[in-house]
Amino acid sequence: MSQPSSWPLPTGSSRVVLPLQLTRQLSRHPLTKHLYPLAYGHYVDALGHQVERLQHTDFLLIFCHRGQGWFRTQHADGSLEAGQLLLLPAGESHAYAASNEQPWSIYWAHFQGSAAAACMDFLELTAQQPVLTLSRWRQLIPVVTDLLNLQTQRHQFAAAVVAASLLQRIIVELPRLTSTMQAPAGFDLPALERFMYDNSHRDLSLDEFADFAGLSRFHFSKKFKQFTGTSPMRYFNQIRVKLACQLLDSSTDSIRQISQQLGFDDPYYFSRLFKKTMGISPQFYRESSVAKVLSQTDALSSSTNTKT
């Protein structure tokens, strides 16, 4: 297995390394043995992130959703821009790094399985051309979010099977997301997303989002779901729950105070929404201590080589 990078995780980033005993179970189980994760995560504004491997024993998928970086293999080299995916096969020595000027934000996964090698052909990638451009990648955000949220659960086999199924779904969805699809006129998703983050302390309505986009309520909702795969309000609430996780991890504010900071007048509604999104309550999330779970995972994996 590949040696992990030493890049430190800032708030908002995550890294999950599955214990060796668990990945061995996945490699034998009929539901997962054809393709299963070894490690996965999300690095945000990853300044200083760089890796070089002369030996590589598993498959590595890196998707850049903001900023940029570069990669080099035995057969290819180039940049990785926002909206592009890099798939590195097992056995391919490589190096990659985030740009110093515009450091990338990336989703990544190390994986293995009897069908892992077939992913290159399925995505029509080669050693000479390992990069895929995804014009409609935002449609996968709900699935990616579900995968990352599994890190809040302790490493039980059932959760690992779910992680394997979500990774498989992400990969099989990729070809249909490569076709060119222009954003609707007057629909600027990056600007709208920035508007959501800037106003995460407010309880915004669908009408306010539609007004910002310059569209009617009906047409805005239709075009937003067509372009992202989810509803505007669910997208906004996912952002607020993500920010809530950061506050629960980094502050000692009460759950009531955090809910008020994120525009929720009713802390009970906030707790129900948080549990619906994350699968656990805000209080349990805080008490479970994600950092402790990851520390325990690293301890279980210390006798073996692990991941990015």
Rank of each mutant, 00 (worst) to 15 (best):
G229N: 13
Y197V: 14
R234C: 01
I255Y: 03
I258R: 09
K225M: 11
L262T: 10
R240E: 04
M196L: 12
Y197E: 11
K225V: 03
I258G: 09
G229T: 13
L204F: 07
L273W: 01
S200P: 01
F209N: 06
F187T: 02
D253Y: 14
T252K: 11
Q261T: 06
K242V: 00
R217I: 02
L192S: 03
K222F: 06
R194L: 05
R272G: 00
D203N: 14
T252E: 13
T252F: 03
C245M: 13
D198Y: 05
T228F: 04
Q260V: 02
M196F: 13
D249N: 12
Y269V: 11
F220V: 04
D266H: 12
K222G: 03
Q261D: 11
S205P: 00
A191M: 08
N237P: 00
V241K: 10
K225D: 03
Q246R: 10
A191S: 15
Y269E: 08
Y268V: 15
F209T: 05
M196H: 02
D253G: 01
F224M: 03
G263K: 03
D266F: 04
R194V: 01
F224G: 01
D207I: 06
L189G: 02
T230A: 09
H201Q: 10
G214M: 08
L189E: 04
S221L: 01
R240Y: 05
F209K: 05
F212I: 08
D265W: 04
F220E: 05
G214V: 06
S251W: 08
L262D: 08
S231T: 11
R194P: 00
N199V: 07
K242L: 08
I255C: 05
P232W: 13
F220W: 07
E193I: 04
Q260M: 03
T230W: 01
M196A: 14
Q238D: 15
Q260I: 00
P267I: 11
I258W: 07
F270N: 04
T252A: 12
G186W: 03
V241A: 13
Y268D: 14
R240D: 06
N237D: 03
H201Y: 06
K242S: 13
I255Q: 09
K223W: 07
F220M: 04
L215K: 15
T230M: 14
A191W: 00
G263F: 05
E193Q: 09
Q226L: 13
D207H: 08
R194Q: 09
E193M: 02
F218A: 10
D203T: 02
I239P: 07
K275V: 00
D265I: 07
F227Y: 06
D211L: 12
R256I: 11
G186C: 02
L204G: 05
Q261W: 14
L243P: 05
L215W: 08
G214L: 06
D188Q: 05
